[in-house]
């Protein structure tokens, strides 16, 4: 399987994606729903999280990936952009730095960057969105668990289900088995284990065109199954709704589920979830340094609406704080049901 970009798929073109999302004749428009909830234009609350996409290169090609990441994607963040990120973290009292990709660990400057962030402040919450299989992909990555531990990194890893069939269907053949091995390595040095302070959270994405159920109920089921069948422990499960862009949008269209899925998202609009969407407290940085309201807007190339501060080297806290957040129909994914964010439910 190749990325949509390598296939020259029409959905690799963000203008086409946006046109498709906007042209569909659905009953509700996201702006109107926000307006009815007295949230339009959507404004930031406080910028607390800097989510940095270190590149689109990845060792996996997941079928739902909103980044369209994979081994054939070569776009990765250079060290000078990371230096600008470090300045912003240092000068703006950022509380959480959330490193994502692709597989962020594949960026050759990854370890330097994490170490530099930790040097700024021992209390910054550094999150690495680790796909687990990267730990086993090459001997040079085998010591990643120790590296995370030394830098007090919170590990957040996707595991869509507690069996191989569903996990491999979404993330590729053999991913479940490798993920279990990697989770055991992480547990082995204390990640996810009570009393260690080393946090290991898992992410559940539905393996298909349906919404996630109760985060609490799924977490209990995951804990029971992973503990009894695989002797694996973790801290929390974050349920995340699949956002209808990129590869998941391609799947929805190909499988004939697009309209029904969008209708379900729109019907499930929850004003409480809308009030707590993550873009109100996050700035997302692209591999080339451009700024976005979230990782999904980044993949749609919808830059922040603050013309004087659209790149990490031009960071202006007040301009970003006063901007209007860019929304479109894909945003219904974050406001459906109990809400969805990179940290799970929001309502």
């Amino acid at each position: 399987m190749k990325s949509l970009k390598a296939q020259n798929h029409p959905l690799a073109n963000t203008e086409y994606e946006i046109e498709l999302l906007e042209s569909s004749d659905f009953k509700g428009r996201f702006e109107n729903k926000l307006e009815a909830s007295r949230l339009f234009p959507l404004k930031p609350t406080q910028i607390e999280i800097l989510q940095i996409n270190m590149g689109k290169m990845c060792n996996q090609i997941c079928k739902h990936c909103h980044v369209d990441a994979g081994p054939d994607r070569k776009e990765i963040m250079e060290r000078d952009i990371m230096s600008h990120c470090l300045n912003v973290i240092r000068e703006n009292k950022i509380k959480t730095v959330d490193l994502t990709g692709g597989a962020p660990e594949m960026n050759p400057h990854f370890r330097w960057f994490v170490t530099e962030i930790r040097t700024i402040d021992p209390d910054i919450n550094i999150i690495v969105r680790c796909n687990l299989t990267i730990i086993l992909a090459n001997p040079k990555y085998h010591d990643l668990p120790e590296f995370y531990q030394q830098n007090n990194v919170e590990v957040v890893s996707s595991l869509p289900y507690f069996n191989p069939v569903k996990t491999d269907a979404q993330r590729g053949d053999g991913v479940f088995e490798k993920s279990i091995k990697a989770l055991r390595m992480l547990n082995g040095i204390g990640y996810g284990m009570a009393g260690t302070g080393l946090v290991l959270n898992l992410v559940y994405n539905p393996s298909g065109a349906f919404l996630p159920g109760s985060q609490q109920g799924l977490e209990a089921e995951f804990k029971r199954k992973l503990s009894t069948q695989y002797q694996i422990e973790f801290n929390s499960l974050f349920t995340i709704t699949n956002i209808p862009i990129s590869r998941f949008l391609e799947y929805l269209q190909r499988s004939g589920n697009y309209e029904a899925y969008m209708e379900k998202l729109i019907e499930s609009y929850n004003p409480s979830a809308a009030a707590n969407v993550m873009c109100r407290s996050t700035i997302s940085v692209g591999w080339d340094g451009y700024l976005y309201d979230c990782d999904f807007n980044q993949m749609l190339e919808l830059k922040v609406k603050s013309p004087e501060s659209q790149h990490i080297k031009d960071w202006k806290q007040s301009a970003l704080h006063n901007r209007n957040i860019v929304v479109n129909q894909h945003c219904f994914g974050c406001t459906a049901g109990a809400g969805s964010s990179c940290g799970g439910t929001t309502a």
Partner: peptide, 11 residues
């Protein structure tokens, strides 16, 4: 079918 899948049941 949708509800059980949303609640994390497998096939």
């Amino acid at each position: 079918t949708v509800d059980t899948m949303e609640k994390g049941c497998d096939e």
